[in-house]
Each structure stands twice: as C-alpha cells, then as structure tokens.
Simulated assay, not measured.
Amino acid sequence: MNRYRKEHDNKWYEITLKDESVKLVKGQQSIPAVKRKYKGQIRSIRRISMQGLQGWQKERLGNYIAFLDLEYNTGDQNKYPTEIISVGILIVERKSMKEKESYYSLVRPKFNTVLNPYCMELTGLRQVEVDHAPGFGRVFREVLDLYRKWNIRQTFVFGSADKPVFLDNLLLNEEEEELYRIGEGMRDISLQLFFTLFGKDGSLSLEKMGRILNVSVDGALHNALNDARLLYLCYRAVIKGEIPQDRLSMAREELLIREVYQKSRKFEEPMTGYPEEKKQAAYALIEELMSTVKTDSLREKGKVLALCDDILLMTGEKARYQREYFHWI
C-alpha cells in the first residue's frame, strides 16, 4: 500500500475549474483535498506525464529555468545568523536544456562577517575575498535584473536550505519586497530526482547524484556556480533519459544494502570499558565474518556489515564498514 501511494505521489495532475483557471497538484492523494476545496467547480482532472509536465511548465512558467546555488557562513543563531557569502546561477532554456547565461558573485555578509574554519575549508574562499565583495542588496538586484531579462519564474535548487536562508537574509538586510520574486520561485528538486532514479523517498548529496548520472563539472564543488551547473547537468540527464543503467543498478543495490544495514544496527556510539585483552578476539571475529560469510543476498550483506560495525562500537572503535563498502551512495 505504501509503495502504491509513493508511486502516485510522484505523479502530477492538472485540475481545470469551470472558470477556466488551472491548478497543478502532485500525488493522487491531493485530489480529494482539491475536490473538497473546489466542490462543484471542477471541470476536469487529467494525469500529466513527465514530458507533459515539461510542456505545462514551459507554458505557465516561461521558456527559461534558473538553477541556483548559495554558499553561506553558518553561525550560532543566538549570536550570529547564517549569511550568504556567494551565489551561482545558470539560466537554461527549458525545451532544449541548453545553457544560456551564467552569473556568479561573492557576497559580503553584514553581521556574521568572519568566515568560520569549516566554511573556508568547504568553499575554498578566503576572508579577504569576502571582505571586498559587494553587499547583499547590490548582488541580488543584479540577480533580479537577470531574472527580468530572461523572464525567470522558476528556480531549481538542491536541498531544503537555500530558500529559507535566502528569505532570512532578505529580512536581515531589510531589502525591497521586489527581491522576494527570486525566493518565491525556488523549488527543491533533490527529492524529485531521487524518486525518479530509485522509485522511493530519500536523498543523496549532489556530488553522489552526479556520480551516478556520470556528470561532472570542471572545478571544485561547493563553489556556488559549479554546484548550480552540476545540478543542471543532473536534471538534464534525468529529463533526457541519459541515465547510465550500470551505475544506477549498482547504486540501487547499495541503497538496499544500506537500508538493511541501518535497520540492523544496534548501537550508535562507541562504548567504553571493553577489556583490552578481548579486543583482538573481537577484531579477529570481524575479519572472519568479512572473509567467510559469502552470500549473494543484498539483505544478508547489509546485516553482516551492521554486525561488524556493532562489534567495533562495542570495543570502543568507530563504525567504518558502511563508509568503506559503499561507493555510490
């Protein structure tokens, strides 16, 4: 029953009302709610395929899509807010999926001005670069001009964080309401991409998604423009059906093993007080399990990996077999 619901949750329906207005809803479960809300006003309901959705989006959401990524300096919300420090945007023609224009800029934060070490290591940005960057208002007014040029009404992002961070930064910087247009059209497509590939709910990092789809960018990730371009390449591969089936098959197998592994794990953190003289015996048991338990069952493999990591945790070591075994997910 759950699988049936998930399959329909990934389908789209066009609701036409008697006043000629049109509503787009996702998932069959949404239809009863629409019927209650518009009781007596519905003219027709029809299913829209992925290709049909593309046409629907083109007609109502314009000929061009923006792919956007934000990098930000995280902070303690009680002291310093999370502030945007770079933005990357790719403008793409919806029908041909061809890149038309790109935009990249650093952003000078207003309150959380000192980059934390993790942020610098992740993004490769230096403090002096951000210190000399234009402010939030100037950067996003340039973005708004770009949106007006291409009549952008829909912006794809990867993950649920970018939109709320952008809206929070609008309030922090007390910017004009017209900039809300950028945030209003943001839509997280990470779950949609995952569902299309695996047929179930879940998520992967953008880097792993690119690996499965065999797409990559020149340059380091966690650069806002590079990440925006990688998201575009992933989306284009899925829309055009350019999915390497061998890579996808391996990723699906690993996903099943990971699910069994996570369900089978008994412990979360390393324990203390395990006798030192017994640790070598535990390590020997792990080696024996890994070398002698032979099975073609993906579920059994997941259980063995979970057992080995649980034994490690009991001895005071960190779990490592999931990380060492999985390559795609």
Rank of each mutant, 00 (worst) to 15 (best):
V130S: 05
K163P: 02
G137P: 00
N10F: 13
Y261R: 10
A224L: 00
K149A: 10
R126C: 04
I42M: 05
M120P: 03
R94Y: 01
K100C: 13
Y64K: 14
F136P: 05
Y4G: 05
K278F: 12
V107G: 01
P244T: 12
S249H: 11
R3K: 15
L298F: 06
N226Q: 03
V114K: 14
Q280P: 00
L213Q: 09
L172K: 07
F326R: 09
S49Q: 04
I243W: 08
S96T: 15
D145I: 01
N73C: 05
D145A: 11
I257A: 09
T74H: 13
G273W: 09
V114S: 06
I89T: 00
G88N: 05
T295P: 04
L313C: 10
R187Y: 09
E276F: 08
K58I: 08
E14M: 10
L68R: 01
Q154C: 08
T196W: 10
E83S: 10
D201F: 11
K98R: 13
L307I: 08
S205R: 09
G40P: 04
F194Q: 09
Y104M: 02
Q262L: 14
S264D: 07
G135N: 07
P117T: 04
I48R: 07
P32M: 06
I15L: 13
F111N: 08
M120W: 02
K278D: 14
H8Y: 13
Y80G: 00
Q322H: 14
S216E: 10
N10M: 11
I45P: 03
E184T: 00
